[in-house]
Computed example of a mutant assay.
Amino acid sequence: MITTLGSWPIGSGTLFIRTGDITASTSDAIVNAANSRLAGGGGVDGAIHRAAGPDLPRACKRIIAERGTLPPGQAAITPGFSLAARHIVHTVGPIWRGGTDGEPETLASAYRESVRLAAEHGAQSVDFPAISCGVYGFPVERAAPIALQTLAKTLEQGLVNAVSMVIFSDNAAKTWLARGSELFGPPA
């Protein structure tokens, strides 16, 4: 189940902060915080691979065979397979190295490229996890404003109608909601 904590109208679309399991999303596309080999793993990546079923690893292996590993900040797309979402956009976020190794720019690129690719495939709604905030160690307090500002720009550009941050932990979701309130004012 996914619960909306707050939202902001931006451009002709809406930015949402939600809590819950992203694999339950009914949006057109969900984003997977993937590793560069698209091989599945722990956290949200493992959950998406398990929920999408056995066709997802085969599709990911084909992508890697065709283009090689996915660099941080870039994105690739597969069908949603067993998920309600039609598409899974796989993106690799940066590993946190203190913030002086291009991590903020790479994180912004991961969000921007994911929306762009989803829109190219007809998606009008895209749900994101907190990219790089798990095992990659990007501090949530620093990641949230980067992600939210980048997603707001994609809404202002009219790429999609809705973007959502779907945060698994209620405590982390409160941080995202607070950062959104600082940037955009009180949520609806």
Rank of each mutant, 00 (worst) to 15 (best):
153 K>G: 05
131 I>T: 13
65 A>R: 15
25 S>Y: 01
155 L>R: 00
132 S>A: 15
129 P>H: 12
51 A>T: 08
18 R>E: 14
180 G>R: 05
174 K>E: 13
19 T>G: 11
148 L>I: 13
174 K>L: 06
2 I>Y: 07
103 E>F: 02
137 G>Q: 15
4 T>N: 10
73 G>W: 03
37 R>G: 06
3 T>P: 06
131 I>G: 09
100 T>N: 15
97 R>E: 15
36 S>W: 01
61 K>E: 15
146 I>F: 08
101 D>S: 15
162 A>Y: 00
180 G>E: 03
58 R>Y: 01
59 A>I: 03
148 L>R: 10
180 G>Q: 06
171 N>L: 08
9 P>F: 02
137 G>H: 11
120 E>C: 05
71 P>T: 12
174 K>M: 06
35 N>C: 05
4 T>D: 11
127 D>G: 11
183 L>N: 04
127 D>T: 08
111 Y>Q: 11
59 A>G: 03
119 A>P: 07
66 E>G: 04
145 P>T: 04
177 L>G: 00
93 G>L: 11
156 E>G: 07
115 V>N: 10
88 I>F: 05
66 E>H: 11
54 P>M: 11
63 I>P: 07
154 T>K: 10
142 R>Q: 14
10 I>E: 03
89 V>L: 09
27 S>P: 01
45 D>L: 08
154 T>E: 15
112 R>W: 10
13 G>M: 01
28 D>I: 06
11 G>K: 03
29 A>S: 10
42 G>T: 14
93 G>F: 07
72 P>M: 00
121 H>G: 08
75 A>H: 03
60 C>S: 04
19 T>L: 12
141 E>A: 13
108 A>D: 13
115 V>D: 06
109 S>H: 05
20 G>N: 01
123 A>G: 08
23 T>V: 12
162 A>R: 09
74 Q>C: 03
68 G>Y: 14
75 A>G: 04
97 R>V: 01
85 A>Q: 08
49 H>L: 08
138 F>Y: 15
73 G>M: 05
132 S>C: 15
3 T>M: 09
120 E>M: 13
77 I>V: 11
14 T>H: 00
156 E>Y: 11
44 V>Y: 00
77 I>T: 00
182 E>R: 09
2 I>E: 07
69 T>P: 04
128 F>E: 05
64 I>E: 05
2 I>M: 11
21 D>F: 07
44 V>D: 02
31 V>M: 13
173 A>Y: 11
106 T>L: 13
101 D>N: 14
143 A>M: 02
